[in-house]
């Protein structure tokens, strides 16, 4: 999908009728394309080139990158900082906002700042507990929860006012996202919780790692019964694991990740576990993309970022589409004139 109104990097696309943001992700999803998003892990450095190097490995394969906000409660470059760098060269990242580290004053300020820089997508998260990360002695804030965070930002966008009711002169135009974990109990409450998030303002949803397809299918069926599928774009999460050992470690140590034994057995039994994990990832993407209500895929490949392009390519879900990246249109133009 090539936008005829593509602006120079750093400027915003015009907002189309019926859209709430100027972002490419919303355009791709609303146009009915299968969207691909990924996670950009922030560097532990103050060097902007570290961010650009990490971002460019996804060029041409993803529609948006999640700039994570202290994921796993570990300290890294801030999501606002990453977004500042990425928007400078035209990327429209998904700014993750976690309730763990900031109160409502700081969060609303960040949302305004982010939107002013060109952030068009915000993912509202509660955040992992501080015990999971490298600063377990930190003070957990949790002033808002992901639900009230969604409502707060929606209010900033739609009513042009802060939570306090004070007016905002130019409202942030955002596409609002939330996370969902169908793989954690209480399973029968999960679709209702999704309904609640939609009621609070979620327009797209990314899920945690999906290895348990039957469980996910059940979740989607219940969500359909509740009439949620027409109201939200759902992007299940997938990702390769480096080995069976890594998978076991992740299952035991990272909150909210459910990996069935069958998956671990399959990886453990393979000659090349890394390769097998990528094969599984491709199969999962293909399988998930067939499920009713799935609008895209969210690939999380921590420390295996270079494998994402290949996984997406092999899955075939882009159907020949080349998502935007800095310099894409010039390159496509060159290629077509060279032919």
């Amino acid at each position: 999908m090539i936008n005829h109104d593509e602006p120079v990097p750093g400027e915003m696309l015009p907002i189309l009728a019926g859209h709430t943001s100027a972002g490419r992700l919303e355009r791709v999803l609303r146009a009915g394309h299968f969207a691909v998003t990924t996670e950009l892990s922030p560097p532990d450095s103050a060097n902007r080139h570290d961010v650009y190097e990490r971002a460019c490995v996804f060029d041409g394969f993803v529609d948006a990158m999640n700039a994570t906000d202290g994921s796993g409660a570990n300290c890294h470059m801030s999501s606002v900082g990453m977004c500042a760098l990425l928007t400078r060269i035209g990327y429209a990242p998904i700014m993750q906002v976690s309730c763990r580290d900031k109160n409502r004053i700081a969060i609303q300020g960040d949302v305004l700042g982010g939107a002013a820089m060109g952030v068009t997508n915000v993912l509202c998260l509660t955040g992992d507990g501080v015990q999971a990360g490298d600063h377990p002695e930190a003070k957990p804030v949790f002033d808002l929860d992901c639900m009230s965070l969604l409502e707060t930002i929606r209010g900033m966008r739609d009513k042009a006012e802060f939570l306090s009711g004070r007016k905002i002169s130019t409202a942030p135009q955002l596409f609002l996202g939330a996370a969902s974990n169908p793989f954690a109990p209480p399973y029968d409450f999960r679709p209702y919780r999704l309904a609640k998030k939609i009621a609070a303002g979620a327009q797209f949803v990314q899920t945690n790692y999906c290895f348990d397809v039957p469980r996910f299918t059940e979740f989607m069926a219940r969500s359909r019964d509740l009439g949620l599928l027409e109201k939200v774009f759902i992007l299940p999460g997938v990702g390769p694991m480096a080995s069976a050992k890594t998978a076991i470690w992740i299952r035991d140590n990272v909150p909210g990740i459910h990996i069935p034994d069958a998956v671990i057995d399959r990886l453990a039994g393979a000659k090349n576990q890394k390769q097998e994990s990528q094969n599984l990832c491709v199969e999962l993407i293909q399988e998930l993309s067939e499920i009713e209500g799935v609008s895209g895929i969210h690939v999380m490949a921590y420390r295996q970022e270079e494998s994402v392009a290949n996984i997406i390519q092999r899955s075939g879900v882009l159907q020949g589409r080349t998502p935007w990246y800095p310099g894409r249109d010039e390159q496509l133009l060159q290629e077509s004139s060279g032919k």
């Binding site: 309730c99 763990r100 509660t126 955040g127 992992d128 507990g129 015990q131 999971a132 957990p140 949790f142 929860d145 992901c146 639900m147 009230s148 996370a179 969902s180 974990n181 954690a184 109990p185 209480p186 409450f189 209702y192 919780r193 609640k196 609070a200 945690n208 909150p255 909210g256 459910h258």
Partner: peptide, 29 residues
Amino acid sequence: PKNLRNGPCGGVRQNGNCEVKPQMRCVWM
């Protein structure tokens, strides 16, 4: 521990206990 007012977070353990306090049943379960 996260003062959630709107339902369980995604970190609930498979046994229904809390992510932050593994010995405690999730308040939202």
